[in-house]
Simulated assay, not measured.
Amino acid sequence: MSSDATSSSDQIDPRIDESAPEDAGATGQVVENVESTAASLAAEGVARGTLGDVANSLGISSAVALRALRGSDEIKPQMAARVREAAERLNFPIEELSEETEHRGVVAILVNTMRNTWISDLVRSIRIELTATGRTAVVVPTRRRVPEYPVAADTDAIENLVHLGVDGFLMVSDLADMDSVLEATGNRPLIGIGCSREFVGRFDTVRIDDEVGQGLLVDHLVGLGHREIAHVGGVGAAVARERADAFRAAMARHGLSDVARVEPGDFTEQVGQTAGSMLLRGSRVPTAVTCANDVTAVGVLSAAREAGFDVPEELAVAGYGNTSLASSGVAQLTSVDPNSDRLGALAAQFLVERVSGHEGPTRDVAVAPSIVVRRSTSAGPRPETTRRKRISVE
C-alpha cells in the first residue's frame, strides 16, 4: 500500500474530533462544507466524489477518511459516522472499497518525461485514490527517439504492460502519436490528465482550464499596471498552443490585443532562456512575461539576469504549474496552481469506474486552477521615463 495514504503523521482535525465538545456551529459548518462540495461536483458535471472530496469537505486527510470508511478501530464512532455520511452525500463509491490487505491490480501512469516536477504531485494524488480500491500505480516514461521521427511513443513498452495485465492507463499530458498509443493499449481503458482539448470525446479527460489559468495571470499583471505583456510558449505540444491562445484571449478581454506578443517556446528551460533573450534584446521590451510552465519561466529568469534586468522591478515573470521550482527561495515565482490533487484523484476515479465496467459516454472535466502570487510579480512597471534604454542587437 502507498505510504502517501497511510502516513502515521496524518492527524484528525480537532474541529471534528469526537473528543471535543459537541458544537452545533462546527457541525453546521461541516454540513455546509459537504453541501458546498456536492454543489461544486454538480457544477463540474461529476456524478461521484473522490476520496479527496470526502476528506476535504470534513477538514481531514484522505488517509483518515479511508481508515474511517474501512471501519478502523482507531477512528472513533462519531468520526466514522460523519465520514460515511459525507461519502454517501457525495456519492463516493463505498462499495468499491477494498480491505487494507487486498491488492487487485496495477495501473500504469504514462508520461513523456520524468523531469517534470508536476508529475510527482499528480502521482501522489493518484496513488491515494487508487489505494481505496486496493490498486497501486507505476510510472512509465514512454518517450522514445528514433531516427525516422524527432519524437515517438514507446508503444512496445505499452504493449508489454498490457501483456503483464495492468488494469488500465492514465496518460499525463499529450503523448506523441496517439493513434499508435491507443492501439497499443488494446482494450484497456485510458484516461487523459492535463491533456489538450483535441482528445475530448476520444476517451475520458480531466484537463486544466487553461483559459481560466492564463486569465488569472493576465488579470493579476494588468491589475499591477502592466500593459506590454508577452507570453513564452505556443510550440511543441497542443497544450502549449492552447495556453498561448488563452493568453491572447485574456489580453483581448482587457483591450490589449495590439500589444499581446507570443514568443515561440516549448516546456524546456533552455528554450525558455532563448525566448527570454529574444524578448529582452528587441526595441520593444515587455514589462511582464507569462510562460507555458514553471521550467520555461526559470529559463526566462536566467535570460533576465544575463541581460541585467531586475525582477520584478524591471520585468515581472510568471510561470504555470506551481511546482517546487516556483516556490524555491531563488525563483519565488508567481505561478498558476492547476489543483493537481483534484486532477489526479478525479482521473483515478474515472479509471476505476471504467475498469469496473462503466460503459457510459466519454467524460470531460476542466478543473479550475488558482493563482499563487510570489515575489517575481510583486511590482508594477516602471514609468517610461525611468526605464533603462536597451539597444537593439542586429
Rank of each mutant, 00 (worst) to 15 (best):
A38M: 12
D210Y: 09
V138L: 12
I158L: 08
D156C: 01
L256G: 07
G329F: 00
V289E: 09
A132L: 12
G225K: 01
V235N: 03
L164W: 12
T133M: 14
L122F: 11
D23E: 07
A80W: 00
D156F: 04
G45F: 03
R197T: 12
V151N: 14
S62T: 13
Q214K: 08
F247Q: 00
Q270S: 10
I391A: 12
A68G: 08
S356R: 13
S2M: 13
I60W: 00
R135T: 07
E159F: 01
V54W: 01
D310I: 10
V232C: 11
A87I: 02
R388P: 02
T101G: 06
I75W: 00
G192Y: 03
V317E: 06
V336L: 02
C291V: 05
E22S: 14
A303R: 01
P361L: 09
V212E: 08
R281E: 05
V46Y: 03
A240M: 07
E269A: 08
V336T: 01
D245I: 06
Q273A: 13
A184H: 03
P189A: 07
V206I: 15
L90T: 00
G319I: 07
R124M: 15
L216S: 03
V123W: 00
E183H: 09
H226K: 07
V64W: 01
V317P: 13
V271N: 09
D266K: 01
A5S: 13
N160Y: 03
G194W: 02
P14M: 08
S72M: 05
A184S: 13
D121C: 05
C291Q: 06
R243Q: 08
L325W: 07
T287F: 02
G234S: 05
S61V: 04
R82E: 15
G201E: 12
A316S: 14
M251Y: 06
S257Q: 15
Q270T: 09
I94R: 05
A252C: 05
T101K: 09
V107A: 03
T101L: 07
R374A: 07
H358M: 10
E74Q: 09
A252W: 10
V300K: 04
L175T: 02
F199A: 02
V206E: 10
V30R: 08
S327A: 10
G165H: 01
S378D: 14
D294C: 04
L333V: 07
V107L: 05
A250Q: 06
L110H: 05
A250V: 12
R375N: 13
A250R: 04
T287V: 12
V139D: 05
V352R: 09
A24D: 12
L301F: 02
T334Y: 06
A43D: 05
F267P: 07
R143C: 04
G255R: 06
I158V: 12
